[in-house]
């Protein structure tokens, strides 16, 4: 997951998505320490205030937490990460189904196509 941004969404929102994906994919492992806001901002090439806002937002979902006087860490709660992964997958699948339905495929055809790809 790279730090690249699209034009149509606020940058902090995109940062939330990118960092969440980095946690889901294990690039930022459970229990690991995150870099300081300023360093993360430099790596991502964004304003530190924007990075701060994104991290605060992710914190409110419980995927990361702050140890006072020490910094931010990825949650140690694997269940929480799995939950975020499931949420992410459902979102993607929903979009995918919508796009195929828009082309006129029905449930059965979609399911068949997916099974074919998965080799079942």
């Amino acid at each position: 997951m790279s730090w690249s941004f699209s034009n149509d969404k606020p940058i902090f929102q995109q940062l939330v998505d990118i960092i969440t994906l980095k946690i889901i994919s294990g690039e930022y492992p459970a229990g690991s320490k995150l870099e300081a806001v300023r360093e993360l901002a430099v790596v991502a090439g964004v304003n530190p205030n924007t990075m701060q806002r994104a991290l605060t937002q992710i914190e409110s979902t419980g995927l990361i937490f702050t140890k006072r006087g020490d910094g931010r860490y990825v949650t140690e709660d694997e269940e929480k990460i799995t939950e975020a992964k499931t949420d992410y997958a459902s979102g993607k699948v929903r979009l995918f189904i919508e796009s195929l339905k828009a082309l006129g495929l029905n449930d059965e055809e979609i399911l068949k196509a997916v099974n074919n790809e998965l080799g079942r």
Binding site: N7, D8, P10, F12, N47, R53
Partner: peptide, 12 residues
């Protein structure tokens, strides 16, 4: 703010 513009206008 840049975030407000992107949010309200849906463009960069």
């Amino acid at each position: 703010t840049v975030d407000n513009i992107r949010e309200n206008e849906g463009k960069s």
